Amino acid sequence: NQASVVANQLIPINTALTLAMMRSEVVTPVGIPAEDIPRLVSMQVNRAVPLGTTLMPDMVKGYA
């Protein structure tokens, strides 16, 4: 099963992502692949992401 990127904390809108904000977890539906975590660092979210939410490509500016 593919691990996805999950929010490790509440991430406010327009926040630049850091490693501490993300974790890898096997979830359904599948979100951004966990191997993309290094690429996500310093990218901004375009909405508030609650703790435990799977990051989807449309939630991260410049990812999709």
Rank of each mutant, 00 (worst) to 15 (best):
L51R: 05
P50F: 13
A48K: 13
K61D: 08
L51C: 04
N1W: 08
V45D: 02
A20Q: 15
L55G: 00
M59K: 02
Q44K: 09
G62Y: 15
S4K: 01
N8V: 08
A3F: 14
P38M: 07
D58H: 09
M56N: 10
V26T: 10
N46A: 13
V41A: 08
V6A: 04
G52K: 04
M21S: 06
M43H: 11
P33R: 15
A7L: 04
R39K: 05
A64K: 03
E25C: 03
M22V: 11
L17K: 00
N8T: 15
M21K: 04
V26P: 12
P12F: 08
P50N: 13
L51A: 13
R47H: 05
D36S: 11
V49W: 02
A16V: 14
A64Y: 09
P50R: 11
V5G: 02
V27S: 14
V26W: 06
V27W: 03
R39T: 08
T53V: 10
L55M: 12
I37A: 12
R23K: 12
D58N: 14
M59E: 03
Q44C: 03
L55Q: 01
A64P: 12
N1F: 11
R47Q: 07
V45L: 10
E35M: 06
I37H: 03
G62W: 08
V5M: 02
A16D: 05
A48F: 08
P38C: 03
V27L: 06
A64G: 13
I11R: 00
A16G: 13
E25P: 01
L17Q: 01
G62N: 12
S42Y: 05
L51S: 10
A7C: 03
I11S: 00
G52W: 06
I13F: 06
V49C: 03
M59F: 14
V6H: 02
A64F: 04
P29S: 05
S42W: 10
V30E: 06
I11Q: 00
A20R: 09
L10R: 08
V41T: 10
T28E: 09
L10V: 05
R23S: 11
V49Y: 02
T15V: 15
V49H: 02
V30K: 12
L51Q: 14
G62K: 08
L17Y: 00
P12I: 09
T28M: 08
L10N: 14
V5W: 02
A48Q: 13
M21R: 03
R23Y: 07
S42A: 06
P29Q: 05
A48H: 12
A3H: 12
L55W: 00
P38R: 07
V30D: 06
T28A: 13
T54I: 07
D36E: 14
I37Q: 07
N1H: 14
L17E: 01
L51P: 15
S42G: 15
V60K: 01
Q44S: 12
V41L: 15
I32H: 00
G31N: 00
A7P: 02
V6W: 02
T28Y: 12
P57S: 09
A34K: 05
G31Q: 03
M56H: 07
V30N: 15
V6Q: 05
P12W: 08
V30M: 12
R23Q: 10
K61A: 13
T54F: 02
M22E: 01
R39V: 06
N14H: 15
N14G: 09
I32V: 08
I13K: 10
Y63R: 02
N46H: 09
I37T: 05
E35Y: 11
L19N: 08
A34C: 03
I32K: 00
M22A: 00
P57N: 05
L19Y: 15
M43P: 00
V30W: 09
A20M: 09
N8P: 02
V41Y: 05
D58I: 15
I37R: 09
A7D: 01
P38W: 10
V30H: 12
I13Q: 13
I13P: 10
